[in-house]
Design a protein around this nucleic acid. Structure first.
Length: 422
DNA sequence: TCTGGGGTCCTAGGACCC
DNA sequence: TCTGGGGTCCTAGGACCC
C-alpha cells in the first residue's frame, strides 16, 4: 500500500523572515506580493485577525495600524535559499521525494512499513526546525489528497503537535467531515460553489457523491479526486518533473507608464531576465510573445495586446531575445494608453544541446554562448544586474520598476548583506 | 493614490482529412 | 422534407495550484 507524507512549511515566508529577525517572533507579520500589493504570507496572529490570503494591503491599512502588524516586502532570494535548506534536510530522511512547491514536499513512505509514522513525522519536524529554523506540519495518508487533508488538520489543531497520520482508514470519516469542500486540494472557488449548490459541503460528502455526476461536471480530475479521497492513489510521487513547457516573466510597474522609451527599458529588463531563466534551465525557446496591459481594475478602458514571433533559430541569447522583444513591443504599443503591466512568454522550449543551427544562421553561436556564460557568472558572483544592457535604463532615472518598500536584506545569498553578530 | 507572478492540465470547438 | 461519420490536430479558454 502506498503511503505519502506531505511536509508543509508553516507560514513559510514569514517564518523565513523570523529566522533572521527574531524580533518578529510572536508579533503579527505579513509578507507582501510584488509591488507591495497583497498579503501572500501571514503569521498565525494575522490569520486570527481575518486578513485573507491575497488581500490587497491598502484595504487592510486600518488593521495594520491598529494591531501594529509588521509589514515586509517579499524577498525571494531569501525564501528560495531557505527552501533548498529544508529540502536538503528532508532528503536525508527519505530519498523518494517530490519537491512540490517552494514550501511543500511529498515523501514516499511506502517502504517504511512497521514504523510508527507519527513518531517519524515528529522527528522530521524537529530536525527541520533545528537545522533551518523553519517550523513544519506533516500529514500522512495513502494518497496525496488525503495527505494534504491530514497536513491541514495537523497545522490547525494544537493536539496533533504538527503531525497527523491518517494512514489508518478508521480515522478518515471524521477527518473528511471537518474538511470544508473549498479546502480540498483540487477544488477551487468555482467548483466549491457548484458543489455546495448540490449539497456537497465537505470532503466526506464529496467522497460519497455519485461518481458519474462528478465526472460529468468536473471532468476526469473530479473522478480522480473521489478516488483519492477513498484512499486509492491516482497521483503518484513525481520525483523527476518533466522539463518546463513555458517560461514567463511579467511584472506590474511601480506606477503607470505611457511613454514608449520607458516601456523599452522595462521590456529589455524582462527579456534579459527571461533569457537568464532559459539559460539556467539549459533551454532554448522557439517562439516568444510579448504583452502589454493597462490597469485590469479599470475595465472601462482596459487594453491588452500581445504579439507572438517565431525566432529564426531557437535561442536563449539575451541580445537576440531583447531585439525580438523590442520589435514586438513597438508593434503593439498604442499611444495614449497608460500601461500597468508588461511581460514576455517563451514557448516551444527545447534542450540547449539539441538546438539545431538554422540554414541561414550567421551568428557565431559558440562565441555568443561563451559571452552569455561569462555574463551569468559575473552576475551570480557579484550580484544580480551587476552587468546589464544599457537599453534597460539608468537606475537613477527609472520610474517603472516594481516597488519593494519593506524588503529585508538578502541575508543568505549576498556577501555584502550577511547578518552581523556583535 | 493603492489590488502578484508563474505555472499545469483538461475540455470544447473548429479545421481538415478520408 | 433535407444534414455521413469519425478520426486527428490545434487553439483558446477555463479551472486549478502555490
Amino acid at each position: 500500500m502506498a503511503v505519502f507524507a506531505l511536509v508543509d512549511c508553516n507560514n513559510f515566508y514569514v517564518s523565513c523572515e523570523r529566522v533572521f529577525d527574531p524580533r518578529l517572533e510572536g508579533k503579527p507579520v505579513i509578507v507582501l506580493s510584488n509591488n507591495d500589493g497583497c498579503a501572500v504570507a501571514r503569521s498565525n496572529e494575522v490569520k486570527q485577525l481575518d486578513i485573507r490570503m491575497g488581500a490587497p494591503v491598502f484595504k487592510e491599512k486600518d488593521k495594520i495600524r491598529r494591531y501594529g502588524i509588521q509589514v515586509l516586502s517579499s524577498n525571494y532570494a531569501l525564501y528560495g535559499d531557505m527552501s533548498q535548506r529544508v529540502v536538503q534536510v528532508l532528503s536525508g530522511f527519505c530519498p523518494d521525494m517530490e519537491v512540490y512547491s517552494i514550501d511543500e514536499s511529498f515523501l514516499d513512505l511506502s517502504h517504511m512499513g512497521g514504523q510508527n509514522l507519527t513518531a517519524l513525522g515528529r522527528r522530521i519536524g524537529a530536525t527541520v526546525k533545528k537545522h533551518t529554523g523553519i517550523p513544519v506540519s506533516v500529514g500522512i495518508a495513502q494518497t496525496k489528497t488525503l495527505a494534504k487533508i491530514a497536513g491541514r488538520i495537523a497545522k490547525k489543531s494544537a493536539r496533533t503537535q504538527g503531525v497527523l497520520d491518517l494512514s489508518e482508514t478508521r480515522y478518515h470519516d471524521r477527518a473528511l467531515e471537518i474538511t470544508e469542500v473549498e479546502d480540498i486540494w483540487g477544488v477551487g472557488r468555482r467548483y466549491a460553489k457548484f458543489l455546495r449548490v448540490y449539497g456537497i459541503t465537505n470532503a466526506r460528502e464529496l467522497r460519497d457523491a455519485d461518481a458519474a455526476f462528478i465526472r460529468k461536471k468536473m471532468g476526469i480530475n473530479g473522478l480522480r479526486l473521489i478516488e483519492e479521497l477513498k484512499g486509492r492513489s491516482c497521483y503518484p510521487l513525481d520525483s523527476n518533473p518533466l522539463p518546463k513547457k513555458n517560461i514567463t516573466v511579467s511584472r506590474s510597474f511601480g506606477r503607470v507608464v505611457g511613454c514608449l522609451d520607458e516601456l523599452r527599458e522595462a521590456m529589455t529588463s524582462y527579456a534579459t531576465r527571461g533569457s537568464e531563466k532559459l539559460r539556467s534551465e539549459k533551454l532554448v525557446a522557439g517562439v516568444m510573445a510579448v504583452f502589454l496591459m493597462t490597469d485590469r481594475f479599470r475595465p472601462e478602458r482596459f487594453y491588452y495586446h500581445t504579439e507572438t514571433v517565431r525566432l529564426s533559430v531557437p535561442t536563449n541569447n539575451s541580445p537576440e531575445i531583447i531585439r525580438g522583444a523590442l520589435s514586438c513591443l513597438e508593434s503593439i504599443y498604442k499611444e495614449g494608453c497608460l500601461y500597468k503591466k508588461a511581460g514576455i512568454f517563451f514557448h516551444e522550449l527545447g534542450s540547449e544541446s539539441m538546438a539545431q543551427r538554422g540554414l541561414f544562421d550567421t551568428v557565431d553561436r559558440e562565441r555568443s554562448s561563451r559571452l552569455m556564460d561569462s555574463l551569468d557568472r559575473i552576475n551570480a558572483s557579484m550580484g544580480k544586474d551587476t552587468l546589464r544592457y544599457a537599453s534597460s535604463g539608468l537606475s537613477a532615472t527609472r520610474t517603472w520598476p516594481t516597488v519593494f518598500n519593506h524588503r529585508s536584506p538578502a541575508w543568505t545569498t549576498r556577501w555584502d548583506q550577511l547578518p552581523l553578530v556583535r
